[in-house]
Structure formats: C-alpha cells, structure tokens
C-alpha cells in the first residue's frame, strides 16, 4: 500500500490560513489502512482545526467527506457539488489524490499528508518500505527481498562493509541489512550458488523515475477518442 503521514498540525494550519470554507476530503484506500487519511482521520483533524481556528479568532467552516479512492474521478465526482461551495479542499489522500482533484476542480487543492512510500505492515503501528517501484523487478533473483528499496545504497552486489555485528544496516540502526537477509533467504531456498556465481549487472534506471515522469499505456484497453 501507499504509506503516508499526516503533516504536523502547525503546518496544516499554516496551509489553511487564507481559507474560511474548506472541504476535508479523505480517501478510504491505502491511507485509511495506514491510519493517515481515512474517514476517521478526517473527523479528528477537522475537530482539531476548528478548535485551533476558533481559539485564534479566525473560525473556519469545514465540510467533511471521504472518497472511496481519490485517485479515480469516478469516486470524486459525487463531491463535486460540495466542492463548488468551498474556497479550497484539504485532501487527506496520497499525492496521487491531490493531483487528481487538482486537475478536476478549479479551486486550490491542499495536501494534508506527506506521502512516504510503498510499504508493508511490519506490525501494529509500524510500516516499512519494501518496494521502490523501479519498473524493472528483480525479486526472482533476490529471494523476494528488494535491495533497491531495502538497501540504503541500493547495492546490487552487496552487502557493503558497513554491516553491524548484529546484522543491521550502518545507515539505520534498527534496519536489518537487506543483503544479509537476501543471502540467508537464498541459502534457505538452496539458491545461493546462483548469487555467488554471477555478478548483477548495472541497473537500467530508465524504467524508474530517472527516465522522466512515467505513464503506462494498455493499447488494448483504449477506447476510441
């Protein structure tokens, strides 16, 4: 899922300062699951902002809502009439949702979240980045553990010399070295020999963001313009 954090309340108040009538629009997909921007967070944030603004003598009128998926027009459309009556929308979706609303509606769309990464739930309350969306997956070679996302230097021929004595990364103390994990995993799978006998070639980053902004086209799905 896409993992996000809510911005600090001070920053949200600053972003909202010019506006008196705002829709707080959550998203019920990834950011609801990671407890940053679902329906519940919309309610909590709206209450906090109302209180802070009333206290500062600049009250704000907040409408609340949550789209099923803000990255899809279809689910945002029902909020059209409410949006028309606002000065701005504070989106509690990931950055995709903010962009999506901004191309559809002619009023300022403001981000309430910092979109972080593609992550997995480590345990209750902890999410970890495990995929970097590089566009050229090599997980079949690395035992299902991604060195691009999980190694700080995205080494393809690791591990580097900075592995700590407890097997953690030199960059993040509580982060297990991805390459130590890859070696262990391949050993368990009986596939370590393959890793030892080959050097992994330099990565072609053109399928990553480094090739410029990306888009995906499925010719067979296109409808006549």
């Amino acid at each position: 899922m896409i993992v996000a954090d809510q911005k600090p309340i001070e920053e949200i108040l600053e972003i909202l300062a010019p506006y008196k009538r705002v829709l707080f629009l959550g998203c019920q997909s990834c950011v609801a699951v990671c407890m940053a921007g679902g329906e519940k967070e919309v309610g909590l944030l709206a209450a906090a902002v109302r209180l802070a603004r009333a206290k500062s003598g600049a009250p704000i009128e907040i409408a609340e809502g949550a789209a099923k998926r803000q990255c899809d027009d279809e689910f945002n459309e029902p909020f059209g009439p409410v949006i028309q009556q606002q000065e701005a929308v504070l989106s509690l979706a990931c950055g995709v949702g903010v962009n999506k609303l901004a191309e559809r509606f002619a009023i300022p769309i403001l981000p309430a979240l910092n979109t972080r990464f593609f992550g997995k739930v480590e345990r209750q309350g902890i999410w970890k980045e495990v995929c970097a969306g590089c566009g050229d997956c090599i997980l079949h070679l690395t035992g299902g553990i991604c060195p691009i996302a999980r190694c700080a230097k995205n080494l393809l021929n690791g591990p580097c010399g900075g592995v700590r004595a407890d097997g953690t990364c030199e960059v993040k103390r509580d982060w297990p070295c991805a390459w130590v994990q890859i070696i262990q995993r391949l050993e368990e799978l009986g596939q370590l020999e393959r890793l030892l006998s080959t050097r992994m070639a330099a990565k072609d980053w053109s399928s990553d963001r480094h090739g410029g902004p990306r888009r995906r086209v499925r010719e067979d799905m296109l409808l006549e313009a």
């Binding site: 700080a152 230097k153 080494l155 980053w205």
Partner: peptide, 28 residues
C-alpha cells in the same frame, strides 16, 4: 568504492546517487 552513505555526513539533506555499485564501477 560505493562510498559512505551521506546520511552520516555534513549534508544529510543531499540526494544520494548510487547509480552504480562498487562492483559495477570496477567493471566500468
């Protein structure tokens, strides 16, 4: 060399490159 990660240096705000790793650099 691959190099020490910038997070421990005097510009932790920097964008790290790590396009190649040390093995790739040797080969290059």
């Amino acid at each position: 060399l691959t190099g020490d990660h910038h997070s421990a240096g005097n510009h932790p705000q920097a964008k790290g490159v790590f396009d190649l790793d040390s093995v790739h650099l040797i080969e290059t």
